[in-house]
Design a protein around this nucleic acid. Structure first.
Length: 268
DNA sequence: AGTACCACCTGACGGC
DNA sequence: TGCCGTCAGGTGGTAC
């Protein structure tokens, strides 16, 4: 799940359940998720401290620790937070537990272990080193068009390039291209200014609506692509069968009718 | 620079 | 029922 809307929702969940709470203990159940630190160090840094602030950039969620520094979470393909009070409610793949003074604990759960938890002093320096670009929702239309206009290769790859803009993953890239009626294999350089502006509008609309729907696929509008990514399902707009292809090794869904390649469109 | 391919890890699902 | 290949919403390295 964890693309920009999911991580935004995780952040709000964290805010409700863990912000301003005092950490009593940190329990690391699988240290392989820790990136540049150890269970002992994480516990030493956090015990007795509060989480005071939180900031999302793309698919990263950074949580400020009073007294300095940040804990930065990445959720991989299967990560999420779960707050629980009864021990029986601890989720199945909890990898790190933050236990709070006064009761309750926040679990960082990650079945496939592709997630990462790290300690960071200088957030900006970390993002620079990681080449994490500006958050997809922070870019205005002009800046978006500007960044995409020097980009080569296929548009879907560009949308998913976290250094170009951060937050769009495989599922929402397809959704955004479907809304903008752009074929995912279109060469980015074939897109006109008007296409890029439409793409930016579609991106904002999709990401914002997904956040409003709590990033819950079942709550998304029925005329979106996402509820229809099933073999044999049809385009909710024109009724033609949806197409599936592979781009960059990732499954890609589209409506071959509604989404024509830019180069094909402008030949006529 | 862009792309293809592999690897990391675990579980669910379909076919035989 | 059981085994096995395939697939999954992310990212990083390598080689062309």
């Amino acid at each position: 799940m964890p693309e920009l809307p999911d991580v935004e929702v995780f952040g709000r969940y964290f805010e409700r359940h863990a912000l301003e709470r005092t950490v009593e203990a940190v329990e690391v159940k699988d240290a392989s998720l820790l990136e540049n630190t150890s269970g002992a160090e994480l516990a030493r840094v956090l015990t007795g401290k509060r989480f005071t602030d939180l900031q999302r950039r793309g698919k990263h969620l950074a949580v400020a620790v009073d007294g300095g520094g940040w804990v930065v979470f990445h959720f991989g393909m299967t990560g999420f937070f779960r707050y629980f009070e009864a021990e029986a409610d601890e989720p199945e793949h909890a990898r790190v537990l933050f236990r709070f003074k006064g009761g309750g604990a926040l679990a960082y759960d990650c079945q496939r272990k592709f997630g990462e938890v790290r300690l960071v002093q200088d957030l900006e320096a970390f993002y620079r080193a990681k080449e994490v670009g500006p958050d997809a929702l922070s870019l205005d239309r002009d800046a978006f068009v500007q960044r995409f206009s020097d980009k080569r290769g296929r548009i879907k790859n560009a949308l998913m390039d976290q250094s170009l803009l951060a937050g769009v993953g495989n599922v929402y890239a397809d959704e955004i291209l479907f809304h903008a009626r752009i074929h995912p294999e279109s060469a980015t350089s074939d897109l006109l200014g008007a296409d890029l502006r439409r793409l930016h509008d579609a991106m904002r609309e999709v990401l914002e609506e997904a956040i409003r729907s709590d990033a819950n696929p079942e709550a998304l509008p029925a005329d979106w692509l996402l509820p229809h990514r099933l073999q044999g399902d049809c385009c909710p707009r024109c009724g033609e069968p949806l197409g599936k292809m592979e781009i960059n090794g990732r499954p890609t869904w589209l409506c071959p009718e509604c989404q024509q390649k830019a180069a094909v469109l402008y030949q006529h």
